[in-house]
């Protein structure tokens, strides 16, 4: 099957790749562009480990085709922090021990960032429902929710 040439922006950089029409955006990020921070946990949009933003909207990259992203803007875990700084969520995840195996962590961070951009002052319940599309099997979510709440407080300028 002939491949489709795609030009798109990932984390601010213009990139090109050739996509098999059946390949997902996740496959293209991982196998064409070498951005393996986004993970495949299910391939059916149930686990959120592949969360990225597409033109600012949070999506499961396993449910988007690579060929669909021509001319779009994609944000992945690799672009979350600055060159020499971490996003407050990344820092708080480490501080709160909000990861054990770490496999779901990139998806949670990307989803958490999307939440805080939309709602800088979420309640615990809002955090839990926003992140209900991200599965973590290790932590029981307790420390993840605390890390997100704490990052939100810090970003609002409140003392933790």
């Amino acid at each position: 099957m002939s491949k489709i040439h795609v030009t798109t922006k990932v984390n601010g950089d213009t990139v090109e790749f050739l996509a098999d029409p059946r390949e997902t955006l996740l496959d293209c990020l991982r196998d064409r562009l070498g951005l393996t921070g986004s993970k495949e946990g299910c391939g059916t949009g149930d686990c959120g480990a592949c969360s990225v933003t597409l033109d600012g909207t949070l999506v499961c990259s396993c449910l988007v085709l690579g060929a669909e992203v021509q001319g779009r803007e994609i944000g992945t875990i690799e672009g979350m922090g600055g060159d020499d700084t971490l996003h407050p969520l990344q820092r708080k995840f480490i501080e709160h021990a909000a990861l054990q195996c770490g496999f779901c962590t990139p998806g949670f961070l990307v989803a958490g960032k999307a939440l805080l951009e939309k709602n800088p002052n979420p309640t615990e319940e809002e955090v839990r429902y926003w992140l209900a599309g991200n599965l973590c099997r290790c932590t029981g979510y307790d420390k993840i929710v605390r890390a997100v709440m704490d990052a939100a407080a810090e970003m609002r300028g409140e003392a933790a």
Binding site: E125, R128, L135, R137, G140, Y141, V145
Partner: peptide, 10 residues
Amino acid sequence: VPVASDLPMI
């Protein structure tokens, strides 16, 4: 499997 909205703090 349990998701975040299924659980309270533990």
